[in-house]
Each structure stands twice: as C-alpha cells, then as structure tokens.
C-alpha cells in the first residue's frame, strides 16, 4: 500500500497576521508557521493504515517555499518514509485547480494507491485539493472520512454527512480521501523519529518543473472584517450580569 499525504504549512493560530503592502495576502515575514492542524489527522490515519496492513510506504507531499521542509520533516519524524517538496518561489499560489495540476503532474508516476488530505487548510480554506487531484488522476474520491478500512483492493470509508448523519462508502483503489479532524489522536514525533527523519529522502521538484498553465483564481484583496453588528458588552460581577440578562430576556428579546 503506497500512501501519499498532502500536507500544507499554514500560519499558526496564535500568529500575528499583518497584511502585505499590496493587501493581497499577509506579510509572511512576520508570521509563524505550523503544520495545518487538520493534516495531522491525515498523517496519523496513513500511519495507522500502514501499521494495520503491516507493509507499505507513507509519503509526505507539500507545496510551498523553503520553509515547508520543516513541515515535511515533522511528518517524517512521526514515521512517514519519505517526502516530496513541490517548490514555490515568491508569493504562494492560492488557486486550488492549478495547484492540483502541479500535484497531479508530480504524483502521476508514483502510482499511489491512496492519497489522504486533511479536511481543509486553516489559511485559504478552499477544501478541494484532494478531490480535484483525485479527479485529475482518475481516482475515486470521498470526503470527511470518520473511519477507514482497507479491504483488499478497495477501501471502505465512513463519511460524515450533515446533522448527525453518516454513510459508509466503498471505493475501489486508487482513491483520494479527505480525513475529518478528530477521527484519531495524532502522535507526536519521538526523539528517535526526529533523529531518523534526518536521513530520510525529500525529493524536490522545482516550480518550473511542476507548474503548467496559468492561475485562474486569485486573491484580489485581503482585509480585516468589519462587523456591522451592534454588540452590547456586559461586564461587572455576576449579580450585575444576571440582572441585565433577565432584563434583556424580558424586555429586549421578550422570551420571559
């Protein structure tokens, strides 16, 4: 079983997010980056599948500037076998379709049985790369997997639907599947894993090699949301708060 996990590096949820001077993204020089949290569930699921099957290879695939090597190494330290880095220079590409074409061109010859992705990225939140890539590579696809079971040359996936509904879907391999956050407990890299990661291969593919065609979707402007809502702030001790809440329930919302 040969499994690719698509991993993105994104600004940390605690990071400052200053706008870039042209206001089309953030000024990355002042941002701290981490592995996209939903992707850690996809890595864990890949490692669990490899352990359950007893053989196989887990490959961490990431796109971005030099900094994303750190995220690839984190995946290798957790136990993945090797990495593929699709290099990008300058501004990050925010077009999922053209990014997927890049992934497709690099991953085609690898003939992966399975591609796993996180639910979506915490930065642009497009949530489509895994499905786009699946279609481009002629794979079957499923999203929001809550459970996975490999059965011979197919994989059975419990998909999360809305409003507390679920559905089992059986996909023939090869397949591209997005993993719902929370379905497993991502492991931390061990010290041995961190040391071992240094000897693992990371294949680099330059932007010129993997990019084909132009970007068709782009960020025009990034800005701080303006809330139009008038919010009444209630501070003070608990008794003051209780008195005001009761007044609101009675007179403003009229539910008492």
């Amino acid at each position: 079983m040969k499994i690719a996990v698509l991993v993105k590096q994104v600004p940390s949820s605690e990071s400052m997010l200053p706008l870039s001077s042209d206001q089309t993204w953030i000024d990355e020089g002042q941002v701290s980056f981490v592995m996209n949290p939903p992707d850690s569930f996809a890595i864990e699921e890949a490692l669990l599948l490899r352990e359950k099957i007893g053989e196989g290879e887990v490959v961490i695939v990431s796109m971005g500037p030099e900094r994303v090597k750190k995220t690839i190494k984190e995946g290798l330290a957790k136990g993945a076998d090797r990495g593929i880095h699709l290099e990008e220079e300058g501004k990050i590409e925010t077009d999922p379709l053209s990014n997927s074409k890049s992934f497709s061109s690099v991953l085609k010859e690898e003939n992966f049985d399975l591609i796993l992705t996180g639910l979506q990225s915490d930065d642009t939140g497009m949530g489509q790369t895994g499905v786009l890539l699946g279609e481009l590579l002629g794979m079957s696809t499923a999203t929001l997997a809550m459970e996975t079971e490999v059965q011979g040359d197919s994989i059975r996936v419990k998909r999360e639907l809305e409003s507390g509904w679920f559905q089992w879907v059986k996909l023939p391999l090869p397949a591209s599947i997005s993993i719902q956050s929370g379905l497993n407990t991502p492991r931390y890299p061990s010290l041995k894993g961190i040391m071992g990661a240094k000897r693992k291969e990371i294949k680099c593919v330059s932007s010129a090699e993997h990019r084909s065609g132009a970007q068709t979707q782009f960020m025009e402007k990034v800005f701080v949301p303006q809330t139009s809502k008038q919010t009444e702030v209630i501070e003070g001790d608990a008794d003051t708060a209780v008195a005001r809440i009761i007044e609101i329930l009675k007179s403003d919302i009229k539910v008492l």
Partner: peptide
C-alpha cells in the same frame, strides 16, 4: 473568510 475567519479575502478569476 480566510485564516480562521480572522481576515476576509476577495477572490476573483480571469
């Protein structure tokens, strides 16, 4: 919304 809804982005195509 982008970056965990801390910022908004206008997205366009050509």
């Amino acid at each position: 919304q982008v970056l965990n809804a801390k910022l908004n982005a206008t997205v366009n195509t050509n």
